[in-house]
Design a protein around this nucleic acid. Structure first.
Length: 517
RNA sequence: GGCCCGUUCGUCUAGGGGUUAGGACGCCAGAUUUUCAUUCUGGUAACACGGGUUCGAUUCCCGUACGGGCUACCA
């Protein structure tokens, strides 16, 4: 009784892969992995007008980056291929012929112009609900209305035609959706959808049924936008006589714009300054690729973790999950029904969590990947960058942030906090800082704790107070009042550099105060 | 317009006929007798509305409102 679970991710190669699509792939993958089934990638390239050649490769790279492995697909093969619908054309024609032969489908010769005219005329009469269905098909030019010889003649002459499914009116069609429960719709709401287009290609509706059936798909997990056409799909399974092996359906809620209205789109990302796709994508005609999450500095594990939680949760309070943990925890029952607004802040938070757990060396490599010239430009070595990570790990979101947020650890500061200088760089204290510099210069072991001991002793002896000394010292070293422990910074910079920065700071502080006087 | 789906803090969500309605992000406030961008502690804040059913409804049912999706020879 227990058959192997088989699921598919079936994007259409019309452009980049949106994160909503990617989340569908993720859920599909998690569900399938959990039960030990097969997950496959099928390319639905039946629309020749919108076909974008680069898209297929992009899908593959995007899935790869996320760690979503396909058991079968265009790129890895498998026993149920071909996995590209354009390579399966004959199959659809064969099956659609079966529908015609059993009078469940028919030829229709109406041109797009005629259809448009029909809809327009109906609209004029106040009918916004016109369909090509049981009510109207007898007024159209098709094999149900035309004499048989004429139909034959038209076909022989090579007249353009489509094949439409003949929907029987007044049937209640019920779908048991795994996310939403029972959804019932009357077949009067469904029109005689085109199955085979005039270019000989199938429509999505036909192709997805034929493929899901012949690829032995057991669970169709897809976006909510497909829910309204699912009853049609059920009717198609029925028409083919495949209802007993029909897959189960699970329709996922949509990912919405952050401010609420509508599906998230690429334009939202551009407008609000965050990516809406996993990896960089070059739009046709654009000279610059648009950044993806990867390019922005997201770790794929963080991205996947974030995505998994957009519309699903384990019901526990754990939030950080590896792919393996997600696989264990995932169930379709825990997918939420309502759409989720995209929250970039939360995405960043996930990245911070993962960043903290990376080793210094890993982070150095990651940061260098964004700016390989830095080593030479700043005259530093990787070991030094590792040291910076030791101090900065908990204070940044993306690996490349250290180049800006910790710039003062790579080069002497070029600005100094004016407020601190004005308030704390007092005439009478200048010699004391000169003294402090000498003390530090005399240290043999310039470790963080040693520097700390030395400075604390100095504070006690001079009675200057922590704030007055440490604040000034920090600004001398970093220019800013923000940052990690001063003692750690001093140790990392090294004695020589600290002494240099103290001298330079004192000189510039004097100048700054002179300007104010 | 028609059909379908949805609605718990600003956001992601847990929960479920009787709860102080829980967590996370964000935000705010204190603490870490050096900074804050870290860490810790605390705080702010939600069951869309109206009818039922019920001893009791945020939870179940029905409406309404609002949001979303679909309505192509696109997927």
């Amino acid at each position: 009784m227990s058959q192997q679970v088989r699921t598919r991710f079936a994007p259409s190669p019309t452009g980049y892969l949106h994160i909503g699509g990617l989340r569908t792939a993720l859920y599909c993958y998690l569900f399938t992995r959990k039960v030990g089934g097969a997950f496959l990638l099928r390319i639905e390239d039946t629309d020749r007008k919108r076909y974008v050649p680069e898209a297929e490769d992009y899908f593959i790279r995007a899935l790869e980056w996320c760690g979503i492995q396909c058991d079968e697909g265009v790129h890895v093969g498998g026993d149920y291929g071909p996995y590209r619908q354009s390579d399966r054309k004959e199959l659809y024609q064969k099956y659609v012929q079966q529908l015609v032969d059993t009078e469940k489908a028919y030829y229709a010769f109406d041109t797009p112009e005629e259809l448009e005219a029909m809809r327009e005329a109906a609209k004029q009469q106040g009918n916004h609900n016109i369909k090509y269905d049981a009510k109207t098909r007898l007024q159209m030019r098709n094999s149900l209305t035309l004499p048989e010889e004429e139909v034959q003649q038209l076909l022989n002459d090579g007249a353009p035609y489509v094949i439409r499914i003949k929907i029987e009116p007044n049937q209640e069609v019920t779908v048991n959706d795994l996310v939403r429960g029972l959804v019932t719709i009357n077949s009067n709401e469904i029109d005689d959808k085109v199955m085979l287009k005039s270019d000989g290609m199938p429509t999505y509706h036909l192709a997805n049924i034929v493929d899901d059936h012949s690829m032995k798909i057991t669970h169709v997990i897809r976006g909510e936008e497909w829910l309204p056409s699912t009853p049609l799909h059920v009717l198609l399974y029925r028409a083919f006589g495949w209802e007993d092996t029909m897959p189960q359906f699970a329709h996922l809620p949509l990912i919405l714009k952050p401010e609420g209205k509508g599906k998230l789109s690429k334009r939202d990302g551009d407008r609000l300054g965050f990516p809406v796709f996993p990896i960089a994508w070059t739009e046709e005609g654009a000279d610059q690729p648009s950044k993806g999450f990867r390019e922005m500095g997201f770790f794929s594990e963080a991205f996947v973790n974030f995505l998994a939680f957009l519309g699903w949760n384990p019901g526990t309070e754990q939030e950080i999950f590896t792919m393996e943990e997600l696989t264990d925890a995932f169930t379709i029952e825990r997918i939420s029904k309502s759409g989720a607004k995209f929250d970039f802040n939360k995405a960043k938070w996930f990245n911070e969590q993962y960043l903290k757990n990376k080793s210094d060396a890993e982070l150095t490599e990651a940061a260098l990947a964004y700016a390989p010239e830095k080593l030479e430009e700043l005259q530093i070595c990787k070991e030094y960058v590792n040291g910076v990570w030791g101090l900065m790990k908990e204070r940044v979101t993306f690996p490349s942030d250290i180049w800006t947020k910790a710039a003062y650890l790579f080069a002497k500061p070029d600005t100094y906090d004016a407020k601190v200088v004005r308030k704390k760089w007092k005439e009478e204290r200048i010699p004391l800082f000169e003294d402090l510099k000498k003390r530090l210069a005399a240290l043999d072991d310039f470790s963080s704790t040693n520097v700390e001991t030395s400075i604390k002793a100095f504070i006690e002896e001079t009675g200057l107070g922590f704030g007055n000394v440490l604040q000034v010292f920090r600004v001398m070293l970093a220019g800013t009042t923000k940052g990690p422990s001063v003692f750690d910074m001093a140790a990392l910079l090294g004695k020589e550099e600290v002494v240099e920065r103290m001298e330079r700071g004192a000189k510039i502080f004097d100048e700054m105060n002179a300007l104010l006087a």
